[in-house]
Nucleic acid binder design. Structure first.
Length: 272
DNA sequence: ATGTCCACCTGCTGGC
DNA sequence: TGCCAGCAGGTGGACA
């Protein structure tokens, strides 16, 4: 589920039930996900009031009035189930609010994580210290991307997955953005000309914004927080569409493997 | 210092 | 129907 738009959508859903509420109970059903969950996390959250929920890269951040921030990562298969109808397999963490809402963190593959840090130490936290700019923020533009890609000898596909270059893109939206920008995934990152970097920045922003918008449009019924994927996937132009016609030129979409991960692309629209 | 590969897990799908 | 191989939205540490 989770690249930046999905995490953003989940955070908005969590904000709706958590902001302004006190956390009444935190239940850890296992001591670890990808990493150990800090043993003092339940005590630090219980009784605290949630001031706000936001996002950095693919991390959801739950801020409390005690100066703590719970840091949530959904990994590959994580989702938040709001007011679940009973327990489900892989509901690893349960958070209950003072007004009775329940949030279950469900993650079959357990590549996700749950941490807690002090608010004032967040920037320096090892998880965040090396992250690149937010792709939808002011710190991300043609100048900063050009600087980050300069001299890089890896394919642009791999460079965009590097969270130190830009924070929050994953396999799906990198494929989609490269298609929209008409750039071949094998193109060496450092060889992109400025006009094409310009186009790439606009494509990245546009793809992410559209994905968030379509997630947000059905947020009222908490479909995202409840975990079902299928909302932006119908708008994917290349991802997961091997053999299907490119929506621009009708050439069959191809799949290749780069750095062990599938890349979907149009061989005509993305020549160089 | 860079770039690439693999491990970490479970579940699902498609081919035999 | 069952079994097995292959694949899946991420990340960071081990290697060249």
């Amino acid at each position: 589920m989770p690249e930046l738009p999905e995490v953003e959508t989940v955070c908005r859903g969590m904000a709706g039930v958590l902001e302004g509420r006190r956390i009444a109970r935190v239940e850890l059903r296992r001591p670890d996900l990808r990493r150990p969950i800090p043993a003092d996390l339940p005590a630090r959250l219980t009784g605290a009031r949630v001031t706000h929920v936001d996002r950095r890269a693919k991390y959801g951040l739950v801020h409390t009035d005690r100066g703590d921030v719970a840091i949530l990562h959904l990994g590959m298969s994580g989702r938040i189930r709001l007011d679940p109808d009973g327990d489900e397999k892989h509901d690893h963490v349960l958070i209950v609010t003072d007004d009775g809402h329940r949030l279950a963190f469900n993650d079959p593959r357990r590549f996700g994580s749950l941490d807690i840090a002090r608010e004032d130490a967040l920037e320096a936290h090892p998880l965040f210290a090396h992250l690149g700019p937010e792709p939808l923020g002011n710190g991300f533009n043609a100048a900063t991307l050009a600087a980050a890609l300069k001299d890089r000898r890896s394919p642009i596909k791999a460079a965009l997955l590097d969270q130190t270059v830009v924070a929050g893109l994953g396999n799906i939206y990198v494929c989609e953005a490269l298609h929209q920008a008409g750039i071949s995934p094998t193109r060496l990152a450092g060889s992109l000309t400025r006009p094409r970097i310009d186009k790439l920045v606009r494509a990245i922003r546009d793809v992410l914004a559209r994905a968030i918008a379509s997630g947000g449009s059905s947020l009222r019924d908490y479909a995202q927080v409840n975990g079902e994927l299928g909302y932006f996937q119908h708008q994917w132009r290349v991802y997961g569409r091997e053999g299907a016609p490119c929506p621009v030129c009708a050439t069959p979409v191809r799949r290749m493997v780069q750095a062990g991960r599938s890349t979907f692309y149009c061989p005509v629209c993305q020549k160089a």
